[in-house]
Design a protein around this nucleic acid. Structure first.
Lengths: 211, 211
DNA sequence: CTCTATTTTAAACACCCGTTTAAATTAAAC
DNA sequence: GTTTAATTTAAACGGGTGTTTAAAATAGAG
């Protein structure tokens, strides 16, 4: 067996950067392989298809993030039965920032990929995420619902999707927004400060009494 | 001069439907012209390019919506100097729903197009909207800021973008969400009920006190 | 009716895409 | 060192894209 990891990793590293920056369908395999300095055909050799490469890029982050986030929520619920929405959202910040230890710019890249993933390609990515990480997602949804018991389940469904939209859109365009905020308000943000800004916004929206 | 309007309108009608459903880059000119039952080359003849067609599709709605929405906000601010955020967001509902009088499914189509527009094609659409409708947008931003004077401008910048994300993402995937809500909660929504659900969420998030 | 300008049409152009093939190369096993 | 398996490579395949061209058809003006 030859040195399998190197080419594969080079492809994943180049792909995740380009996918996060430009989106999946706007990033061609030829661009990825030229940045990675590997042959075009090696993507299909190692991953089978572009779709599977996309899934592999996301899985590399989700496999790290999801179990940690899940464990943190379990821990929070065990230690504080009346955890607030702010507490629940906030407990995800550290696992998110820890992705910077996995790879440089890991947090920002992961969140942007997640945004792109939900915005583009209705089919296979949603399916991939819900079937592979559904239990973790359910647990998160349940934790949020328990923290806002005055919101009926159907209303909570909508509010969680509003929340998803806020996060996904903000993260997908975070780089541009951070630049504009710096130019217009001399306010120098990074992904962490943006995450900390969005949490109160989300908590307030999710928990606002219905009528 | 020949019957110029028919082909042009057929293209716009087919294009806006397909763009709203599938996004801009996922919709080919060949698909549009076959649905519109016109020749492929007529798009370039009447609009110049695909980009200009996209702008024309959006302009047809924005030209109706923006002046009306603007006038309503002026009217509200004149009649009630202490209009709440809910009031401001709510005053946009009627102009939005009036788009159903312009064309069938007008409201839903317009909002989905707006969502697609902000998600895709970073460059030309943002530029087009801000340069052509910038005054109306500024007025709206100012009205919101006046209604939440306790939020500093830089913070308001971020919250308005969170809001944009919520709206854009929700509207771009509204059809799918309405279906899921019907299946999972036997709750039968349409674009109007979704708009009315999202407004309190947005108002709460935008006005929540910082720290 | 005739002439001119506008519009429609079929065809081709030039380019980019993901994927496949088969040969060349490299690494591992014996 | 030879054989076998894994990997890399260059090239081509088949298909889709937006756009352009030049001829045909249509409509309006004199």
């Amino acid at each position: 067996m030859a040195n399998r990891s190197d080419t594969k990793t080079r492809i994943l590293d180049a792909a995740e950067k380009l996918f996060a920056e430009r989106g999946f369908s706007e990033t061609s395999l030829r661009l990825i392989t030229s940045k990675a300095e590997v042959n075009l055909a090696s993507v299909n050799y190692h991953f089978g298809s572009k779709k599977e490469l996309i899934r592999a890029v996301l899985a590399r982050y989700l496999d790290v993030f999801m179990p940690v986030a899940s464990a943190e929520i379990v821990r929070l619920q065990a230690s504080d039965k009346n955890a607030s929405l702010n507490d629940i959202f906030s407990i995800l910040v550290e696992p998110l920032l820890d992705l910077n230890k996995v790879r440089a710019e890991g947090t920002s890249t992961f969140l942007q990929l997640l945004g792109r993933g939900y915005i583009e390609s209705q089919g296979h990515l949603r399916w991939f995420i819900t079937t592979h990480y559904g239990e973790h997602l359910d647990q998160f949804v349940k934790a949020v619902a328990d923290s806002a018991p005055h919101i009926p389940p159907a209303e909570m469904f909508w509010r969680l999707h509003f929340t998803l939209g806020t996060v996904v859109f903000t993260m997908a365009s975070a780089d541009a927004l951070i630049e504009i905020a710096a130019a217009d308000f001399s306010e120098h943000n990074n992904i962490e400060t943006v995450i900390r800004k969005v949490i109160p916004y989300l908590s307030a929206g999710v928990s606002v009494p219905v009528n």
